[in-house]
C-alpha cells in the first residue's frame, strides 16, 4: 500500500521536475511570435496560385503581399485547408506542386500550390469569393481557421511573388523564471512530503518492533 500512499508525493516531484524542464525548453526553443513564408510561382495558361494559412494552434494576424498579380481572391475555411483543395478537385480544381511548411514554434501551417482550373470554374469562384482591394491583404485569423487565397496572375508565364507574415496574437505563458521557480517549489514540496512519509513509516516500524 506504500505505492499508492506515496504516489501523490512522487507525482509532485515529477511535476516539479517537468515544469523546470518546460522552463529550460522555452528558454532555448520557445514560441516565435512572428512567422514568415515567401515564394515565387510561375503560373501558365489556365493556372492560378493558391496559398493557405492555417492558424493551427493559435490565433494571429496575417499579412500577405504579392507582386505580379492582377487580382487576389480569398475565403475563410474552418479546419484543414488541404481538405478544402481535396474537395475542390471534384469541381475541376487541381492543385499541383504543393509546398507545405509547418512552423511549430508559431503554431501556423502554410501551403502554396499552382492550381489548374477551367475558365468557367474561375468565373464561378470569382463571384463566390471575397476580393482584396489591392495586391495585399491583412486578416485577423482565429485559431483553427484557414485563410485561403487565390492569386490570379497579371500575365500568364510571368512570376508571381508572395510574402506572408503571421503575427501570433492572444498567446500568454509563464516566463522562464516563473516556470523554474514554480517547478522548484512543487518538486521541493513533493520531496518534503516523501521525507515525512519515510519518517512516519520508520516510526511505525520502530513502534511495532518495541511491541
Amino acid at each position: 500500500m506504500t505505492g499508492l500512499r506515496s504516489l501523490p508525493a512522487r507525482l509532485l516531484v515529477v511535476l516539479g521536475l517537468s515544469i523546470i524542464i518546460a522552463g529550460i525548453a522555452s528558454a532555448y526553443a520557445g514560441p516565435k511570435m512572428i512567422a514568415t513564408y515567401n515564394g515565387v510561382r510561375t503560373p501558365m495558361n489556365g493556372e492560378i496560385v493558391g496559398i493557405t494559412i492555417w492558424a493551427m494552434s493559435t490565433s494571429g494576424n496575417v499579412t500577405v503581399k504579392a507582386r505580379g498579380v492582377g487580382e487576389i481572391l480569398y475565403t475563410i475555411v474552418k479546419g484543414d485547408p488541404i481538405g478544402f483543395f481535396t474537395n475542390a478537385s471534384a469541381f475541376g480544381v487541381h492543385a499541383e506542386a504543393i509546398d507545405m511548411s509547418h512552423d511549430i514554434r508559431s503554431g501556423v501551417f502554410f501551403a502554396s500550390a499552382r492550381v489548374r482550373l477551367d475558365p468557367l470554374t474561375l468565373i464561378y469562384i470569382s463571384k463566390k469569393l471575397s476580393r482584396a482591394n489591392d495586391s495585399s491583404i491583412a486578416y485577423s485569423l482565429p485559431q483553427g481557421e484557414s485563410l485561403v487565397l487565390i492569386l490570379i496572375p497579371a500575365k500568364y508565364g510571368e512570376p508571381v511573388r508572395y510574402n506572408v507574415t503571421f503575427h501570433v496574437t492572444g498567446y500568454e505563458r509563464l516566463s522562464t523564471t516563473q516556470l523554474i521557480g514554480l517547478g522548484t517549489g512543487v518538486a521541493s514540496l513533493g520531496l518534503l512530503w516523501l521525507a515525512v512519509l519515510k519518517i512516519k513509516t520508520r516510526r511505525l516500524g520502530a513502534g511495532r518492533g518495541v511491541e
Partner: peptide, 12 residues
Amino acid sequence: AAALASIEPTTN
C-alpha cells in the same frame, strides 16, 4: 509533454 507544450504557442 513539458518540452513540446513550451515550444508551440497555443491559445485553445
